[in-house]
Design a binder for these strands. Structure first.
Lengths: 107, 107
DNA sequence: TTATTGTATGACTATATAGTCATATATACC
DNA sequence: GGTATATATGACTATATAGTCATACAATAA
């Protein structure tokens, strides 16, 4: 459980960053090359490349070469399930906090 | 979706770290005070306290005071679902990599 | 009031991370 | 061969993070 905790953390880290989340979202529709990804998420090519490499190294993206282009795809359906569940948490938190504000407003 | 991406990343970051994962695992059985948590996960009290505060601030832990003791609990069931799915990814990756090694070994 | 216990935090260090710019490398095309 | 396009990476900066130690603070007990 201990050495696995590190791998587990690495997998989660591969999703726990704004730019990487944008990449994951864009890859919902399937495999895309770097040249499609970086303009879509509005990030520099080099920065996008680094994040893609990071995610692939940590096992959440697959990488396929076709000529000059490199195609990346989300490798495990669990990645989307994780993002969806995190989104549910965020929604509930936002809801809850706005309720608190309403209660405070009413005095 | 953009400002939300930051919140989303923060929620995932609250799980994407070895010490925090140990805390989450320990809290599977429910609410626990700091004095129970830090010996269980074998971390310093101060470090544990910081991580607990971080997770609570980012909305994945609840905090309850009872006398001198502070009780923390995982606030959303999705947290465990996320950890479980990340574990499934790790398992599959480990499997896959050991298969690769076997293939390579056989020449 | 003083001592004890449980938790949080200031100050600090070491390391990791995200991002940028320039450039290297690889494939394809002429 | 030379040129264009796609991707990766070295070198760097700024910031964030995890951890430690000492100490502050809060609640309770004596």
């Amino acid at each position: 459980m201990n050495s696995n905790t590190t791998y587990l953390a690495d997998v989660l880290k591969s999703m726990a960053q704004a730019t990487r989340l944008k990449i994951i979202e864009f890859l919902r529709d399937g495999e895309r090359c770097v040249c499609e990804i970086f303009p879509a998420i509005d990030e520099e090519q080099s920065n996008t490349s680094r994040h893609l490499a990071y995610m692939q190294t940590h096992g959440i993206l697959s990488r396929r070469k076709d000529g000059v282009k490199i195609y990346y795809a989300v490798k495990h359906p669990e990645v989307f399930e994780i993002v969806d569940r995190a989104t549910a948490i965020v929604r509930r938190e936002v809801e809850q906090r706005s309720e608190m504000i309403n209660l405070a407003g009413r005095g």
